[in-house]
């Protein structure tokens, strides 16, 4: 009995966004990464185009972090003392991109200066040819100060500057426009808020093919179901033709998962949680896989083993089934 395959008809398409610029394009990257362009829900190859595979970034910091799980710190060991060495190691571990997260303070506890931030970014750019995402420490005034300095010192690189939120986007968008970079628009799990922020950013004149959208996701066990559903809704809105949701989605399962007790803590936890290291890797991997299935284009991870597992999943999912 021939079964008629039910295909959903979509008329929208996710924008294509290219991260990084090579020498011919005004930057210094040896390769660029392109995401987006989907005309169907995640991995539904039989009814639409998925021209670019989801990619994986590894997150590093400008200095050895104080608040990361000791599992990660032991793993990266002294590489974490030097962002250039760390970036190189992340590239060797198979990352498509590097995310450099700037710290609020330096190792002595003094505020990170714009000069130090620029220095760290330049070191990383020199150490790896991969496209780079640079995140501020997450405090509006500090983010603005550091990211503006970084953006100006790296004009033309098409870095991704993170992150723009409703209360703090103008300065970052302005410097991204002036210096040929990209931005991330982050909203707390809400389709309408995401649209609004994207409108505000585009109203400032930044072309939308230089904007990525972070819907905020939560970790496995800590709200991932909200992230999962809001991503499905955002992607459906994009495919239905809503221009202000047609941006590739970037998510940070590494940050989310490694914040949870399950990943952070190895002692005094229930026996039913099992081996610490495996549990932590599984926590990050499952958080990432759930988000991949709901529409992520860029996944930022922290552990190379999770990267390996999620990469294998992407390779598999990007193969179109021959018969159904």
């Amino acid at each position: 009995m021939p079964v008629e395959i039910p295909k959903d008809k979509w008329n929208g398409q996710v924008r294509v966004v290219t991260l990084g610029a090579t020498a011919d394009q005004g930057g210094t990257r040896t390769s660029t990464v392109t995401v987006g362009g989907e005309t169907t829900m995640p991995f539904m190859h039989f009814e639409g185009e998925i021209p670019h595979r989801p990619v994986i970034a590894l997150e590093i910091k400008d200095r050895r972090p104080d608040d990361w799980s000791s599992l990660l710190l032991d793993l990266w060991s002294d590489k974490a003392d030097d962002p250039a060495v760390w970036a190189k190691a992340a590239e060797e571990a198979g990352a498509d991109l590097i995310q450099l997260s700037l710290s609020l303070t330096n190792a002595d506890g003094n505020p990170t200066t714009p000069e130090a931030a620029v220095d760290a970014v330049k070191k990383v750019l020199a150490a790896t040819g991969l496209p780079l995402l640079v995140f501020g420490p997450g405090q509006a005034d500090v983010d603005n100060e550091l990211l503006v300095a970084v953006a100006e010192a790296t004009k033309g690189e098409r870095l991704v500057l993170g992150i723009c939120e409703d209360k703090n986007y103008r300065t970052i968008v302005a410097t991204a426009m002036a210096n040929d970079h990209l931005v991330i628009a982050r909203c707390p799990m809400d389709v309408n808020l995401s649209k609004q922020l994207n409108i505000l950013i585009s109203d400032m004149g930044l072309p939308l093919d230089r904007v990525l959208m972070d819907p905020t996701t939560g970790a496995l066990g800590y709200g991932i179901e909200y992230g999962f559903s809001v991503m499905e809704r955002l992607r459906m809105a994009a495919l239905q033709g809503d221009a202000m949701t047609q941006l590739p989605m970037i998510v940070t399962p590494g940050f989310e998962a490694w914040k949870t007790k399950e990943s952070k803590v190895g002692v005094d936890v229930p026996e039913s949680w099992g081996d610490w290291e495996q549990r932590a890797i599984n926590w990050e991997t499952i958080t990432a896989v759930a988000l991949l299935e709901s529409g992520a284009d860029i996944l930022v991870l922290r552990h190379p083993e999770s990267l390996k597992r999620v990469r294998a999943a992407i390779e598999d999912l990007m193969t179109a089934p021959e018969t159904v």
């Binding site: 496995l220 999962f228 399950e262 026996e271 495996q278 549990r279 599984n282 499952i286």
Partner: peptide, 13 residues
């Protein structure tokens, strides 16, 4: 347990 626990939580979520 470190294999089952994350899966069982995902299912619950």
């Amino acid at each position: 347990p470190d294999f089952v626990y994350p899966l069982i939580v995902l299912r619950q979520n």
